[in-house]
Design a protein around this nucleic acid. Structure first.
Lengths: 242, 242
DNA sequence: TCAGTCTGTTACAACTCATTACAAAGTCAG
DNA sequence: CTGACTTTGTAATGAGTTGTAACAGACTGA
C-alpha cells in the first residue's frame, strides 16, 4: 500500500518462478513487479522506479549477464543474480562482480528475501546522489551543524553541544532527508551494532535529539515518526562545502 | 567521496576482471584505480598514493611475482596476489616473496573485499615510513615536528619539549590521520606493550599531549575522542623529507 | 469500542572518559 | 653512589554518555 515499500523487479523467463517469487515478496511486505526478458525489463525500468532487481542469468535473447553489466555501469539499481547451480557459478564468481549478490537455483525464498533485505539495507546506507560527509557545514531549519567540530548552532548563535551518539544520529538523518529509516538501519548507521531483542536505544537517542533541535518536542516537525516503520527527517538540508 | 578512503590499485591484464573489481570496490566505499600491466602499475605508483595493490600473477611482459618482489623490497605497499590456479607452488612462492595475502581465481568478490579490509587493518598498525630514519619533518596545524630531534615547534617559533612517550604517541597519530585508533592499538604502537587489566595510561598520555598541542585543551580540535572507540587525529599532516 | 501493538519518556544502572594526585621507575650531574 | 628531577603507570574521583526497564499514552484494525 505505501509507496515507500521497496520495489523489486523480478526478471526470469520461467513464468512459474517469477510469479511465485513475486507473490512471496509481496506477502513479505515488498512491492514486486515481473518481466520475462531483458528487453521487457529495460522497458519497465524506463517508466518505473525500482529499488532492486532480481535477475536470472540464463534467458533467451539478451541474457542476464549483459543486462546486469549495463545496469551496473549506470550504477543506479542494485542487482541480485540468479544462477543455475553448477553451470555458471564460476563465471559469476570470477567475472560478474558488479552484481551486489547472487543466489544459486534452486533457491530458498527465505534466503533470497534475506539477501534482498541485506542489499537494500546496504543501498540505503550508501547515499547515491552526493556524499555530504566532506561538507564542512550542514544547515537545516535554521540550524547550522559544523561537522568537523561536531557543533550545532541555532539561528540565535547559541551553540548546542551534541553527544557522540546524538551527532551521528543527526548526521544519519541529514544525509538522507525524507527517507524512512528503520531502527535497525539507524542502529547500524550510528554505532554499527546489530539490534538486540528489545532495543529501544534508538528511541531514546531520537528523544534526546528531538529535545535539543525541535522547537516543540511534543509535536516534532523535523524528525517524524513513521508508525511501524521508523523515523524520517523532513526538512530541507543544505550542505556547504567551504 | 572522501579522499581519505583507502586507495586500491588493481593490476590485471584482463579488462573485464579489473574494471568490474574496481567498480565493486568503489561501490563498497573504497577508492580504486586500475593498471593493465606491471609497467603501467609502476608508473602509476610514482604519482599516486596507494594503500594496497591487488595484483594478478599471470601477466604478459613483466609478471606479477616480479613486481610483487620489488614492491615488497621497498616495503611501502601491502600486496594481495591473484593466482590463476590454486597450485601450491604459486602459493608458496607468493607468500615467501612477502605478499600479504593471496586469492585464487575464480574468486568471490566479497571474500576478496574481506581480505582487503583485513590487510588494511593490519597495515594500519605498521607505519609506512616514507623516509626511514633521518631528517623527516611533519607539519600540522601550525606545528612543526622534527622527528630526528624529537622537537616540536609552534608557529611562533617556540620549541615545546616532548617526552619519549608523548613523542611516540604524536608520531603514531601523525602517521594515521583521521583513523580511529583504539587504546590497545595506541599502546601497541607507542610501547609495544599489551594492555593490562585497567589501563588508563593512554588516556594520560593523550591528556598530557593535548595540554601541549591543543590551543584549548578543554575542547580538543586535533586529537578527538571517539566514544567507545579510541582517539582520532583530525588535522592535515604534511610529510616533508628534508 | 477494545485489545493488542507500537511509541515517548522517565528513571536508573552500567559504562566511558578527563583529570588530579601519587608512587614507582628511570635519568643524570656531581 | 647519591639526590634532585623527569617520566610514566596506577588509582581515585567526578562528570558525561548510553542501554535497559518500565509504564503510560497513542495508534491500528477488527
Amino acid at each position: 500500500m505505501s509507496e515507500h515499500e521497496p520495489h523489486i523487479l523480478v526478471v526470469d523467463d520461467h513464468r512459474d518462478i517469477r510469479e511465485q517469487l513475486a507473490r512471496y515478496l509481496r506477502k513479505s511486505g515488498l512491492r514486486a513487479s515481473v518481466a520475462d526478458s531483458a528487453a521487457q525489463a529495460r522497458k519497465f525500468l524506463k517508466s518505473a522506479a525500482v529499488d532492486l532487481i532480481v535477475l536470472d542469468i540464463m534467458m533467451p535473447g539478451e541474457d542476464g549477464l549483459s543486462l546486469c553489466r549495463s545496469l551496473v555501469e549506470t550504477g543506479t539499481v542494485p542487482v541480485i543474480l540468479l544462477t543455475a547451480m553448477a553451470e555458471d557459478t564460476d563465471r559469476i564468481v570470477g567475472l560478474e562482480i558488479g552484481a551486489d549478490d547472487y543466489v544459486t537455483k534452486p533457491f530458498n525464498p527465505r534466503e533470497l528475501l534475506a539477501r534482498i533485505r541485506a542489499v537494500l539495507r546496504r543501498a540505503a546506507l550508501v547515499p547515491r546522489d552526493r556524499d555530504p560527509v566532506d561538507a564542512e557545514t550542514l544547515t537545516f531549519a535554521g540550524w547550522t551543524l559544523d561537522v568537523a567540530k561536531r557543533l550545532l548552532t541555532g539561528e540565535d548563535g547559541v551553540a548546542v553541544p551534541l553527544s557522540s551518539g546524538e551527532f551521528q544520529l543527526l548526521v544519519a538523518f541529514l544525509k538522507r532527508p525524507r527517507m524512512v529509516l528503520s531502527r535497525d538501519q539507524l542502529l547500524d548507521l550510528t554505532s554499527g551494532r546489530t539490534p538486540g531483542v528489545f532495543d529501544r536505544s534508538i528511541d531514546n537517542q531520537v528523544s534526546r535529539l528531538r529535545r535539543k533541535i525541535e522547537p516543540d518536542p511534543k509535536t516534532p516537525e523535523l524528525i517524524k515518526t513513521v508508525w511501524g516503520g521508523g523515523y524520517t527527517f523532513t526538512a530541507d538540508v543544505q550542505d556547504t562545502a567551504s
